Computed example of a mutant assay.
Amino acid sequence: MQSFYVELLHGLDARRLVELREPTGNDQALFVDRGATPPVRCVSALIDSLVLRIGEHTPVPDELAQLTVGDRERLLLALCSRLLGAETDLVVTCPSCKNIVEVPIRFRDLVSAQPDTSDRRCVLAARDGSWAAEVTLPTGAVLERTLGLGQKSARRLLESCLTALFDAQGQAVAREALPEDCEAELAEKLLALDPLAECRIAVECPHCAASFETLLDGYALLKGAFGSSSALYGDVYRMARAYHWSEAEILALPLAKRAQYLAIAAATGEASG
Rank of each mutant, 00 (worst) to 15 (best):
R155D: 06
S160F: 07
W131I: 06
G224S: 14
A187Y: 11
L149F: 13
K257Q: 15
L193A: 04
E198P: 01
A65P: 07
M1G: 13
V92K: 01
M1N: 13
V135A: 02
E270R: 10
P23S: 04
S96W: 00
C42E: 02
L178F: 08
Y261R: 07
S153I: 03
R108F: 10
F212Q: 08
P195R: 01
L158H: 01
A132D: 12
A242S: 04
S49C: 12
L253R: 01
A172E: 13
E188N: 11
L67E: 05
R258P: 06
L190M: 07
F166W: 14
L158V: 05
R155P: 01
I105W: 01
P206D: 03
R238M: 12
S229P: 06
L191A: 03
V32Y: 11
D48L: 04
I100C: 15
A45T: 06
I105Y: 00
M239S: 09
L124K: 03
V101P: 01
L215E: 14
P95R: 02
V69C: 14
T268A: 14
D27A: 11
D27S: 14
L12Y: 09
A242P: 09
V51F: 14
L251Y: 04
T214H: 06
P59S: 10
A210N: 11
G55Q: 11
H244Y: 10
G35S: 15
L9H: 05
S44N: 13
Q114N: 13
C205Y: 01
R41V: 13
G150F: 05
Q28F: 05
C94N: 07
G269A: 08
S160L: 05
L216K: 02
L196V: 06
A256G: 15
A242M: 08
T139L: 01
R34Y: 09
L222V: 07
R175T: 15
